[in-house]
Design a protein around this nucleic acid. Structure first.
Lengths: 223, 223
DNA sequence: TATATATCGATATTTTAGTATCGAAAAATA
DNA sequence: TATTTTTCGATACTAAAATATCGATATATA
């Protein structure tokens, strides 16, 4: 009856966001372990390396449909494949980036994205000084060319690094070109249609957490 | 008996992290509303602007020790002050930044940090080409000078933008100089002493969430 | 001044995330 | 081959976060 015995029976159907956020960390560790020639790893070892609890690791990995082996742990090879399948499900996601300022340029130069299935196919800017050049080997086009290039390259994801004033306008352009997800690095609260996903990266949020955590720790009676 | 009637009696003592992450969003909105000349705002209005539910807003704001007025909502002025008090509690937090690559430079140029109480006092790099220059008006020093400058400037926060290979080494240098919080933009899993706070900013986590959310939405039966 | 209405905030409930426990299973060892 | 040991994964439990309900209250309106 069960044609996939190596898939955990109880592997939960809906993956949870805290788990999703940890998957890249597992992936990085596993790739490192593989390069060291290791074949198996236990949830205990993973937990130690990533400062998590073993039970969290086991629950997370259950979502990827993996089966660990008693006394051995998980097959590193299999884990890498199944995590990559979860994160990187559509192969290389074609993305457009708008706003080649400091942060936009930094993202264009970030080598890690391809590992996670993201391919920034083109960059756009309003500034005449910045267009028709390349930044980190990525072509920068004037914003007007977005529809034309979108028709050719079919981007899924739009990475938004423009100033707040133009953010909503640029998003609407992206959405009308068929982009299905907006990765928003501006601090503008954007409105997108219901079928478009909006992922806000708020640096200030991380900073606020850090500040308050420092405060808490300094006041904590015992560590 | 109650000497602070304007402070909510039930204002919870321990603030929660999801709330902390939303505070900068409230703050940005409130500052905008104030600049428009508004005096009061309701949780309903805030929720609409930030795509939250009113009840979430009310619970979050309760943590800041604020009191809303029936039929009017919250005093924008008071809210701004109390949120700033929570986030920005030590005045301007002095920070050091290490690694003046693409991302490090982008962060040095980010104007928003001062709003949240962060002052990047100095930047450091190992690369001889990069040191003894300024990037976005911030001085870049050789890494060896970190202890000397730390003794003078007493940084609380270390912002880490160095390559993975040198991340642990740089962190240890920072920690030994008395830095109490590490804001880690490298993808290295760092070890820090128990009294130091580590805040990891993992771009891949955001990307994974975005990818999977797009997938979910495209499969969702009805929106 | 009396009444209607909008909005807060306390309490209770539900959902989600994380943690504990322990039996089962497979590899290692005797 | 039998036994021991390690590690998983199912179930149960606890904690955290989000959501629902509704009475209280201050403002606006009649």
């Amino acid at each position: 009856m069960d044609s996939f015995p190596e898939i955990a029976k109880n592997s939960e159907t809906i993956i949870r966001m805290p788990t999703v956020r940890r998957l890249p960390r597992y992936l990085r560790l596993l790739i490192e372990l593989k390069s060291e020639g290791k074949d198996f790893v236990s949830s205990e070892k993973i937990a130690q390396a990533l400062d998590l609890k073993p039970i969290v690791v086991r629950k997370d990995l259950a979502f990827t449909g993996n089966c660990g082996k008693p006394r051995l742990g998980y097959s590193i090879e299999h884990l890498i494949i199944s995590i990559e399948n979860v994160i990187n499900f559509r192969g290389k996601d074609t993305a457009f980036l708008a706003g080649v300022g400091n942060l936009g340029s930094a993202l264009l130069g970030y080598k890690g994205f391809e590992k996670y299935g993201l391919n920034i196919a083109a960059a756009f800017d309003l500034d005449k000084e910045k267009v028709n050049k390349t930044v980190h080997n990525k072509d920068v086009y004037p914003l007007e060319m977005l529809p034309v290039l979108a028709a050719r390259l079919h981007p899924y994801i739009g990475i938004l690094c423009v100033p707040e004033e133009s953010a909503q306008e640029v998003v609407e352009k992206m959405v009308s070109c068929g982009i299905k997800g907006i990765w928003n690095f501006s601090n503008k609260e954007l409105k997108v249609p219901a079928d478009v996903v909006l992922q806000n990266e708020d640096l200030a949020a991380g900073l606020a957490v850090l500040s308050i955590s420092i405060d808490k720790k300094s006041k904590a009676p015992v560590q």
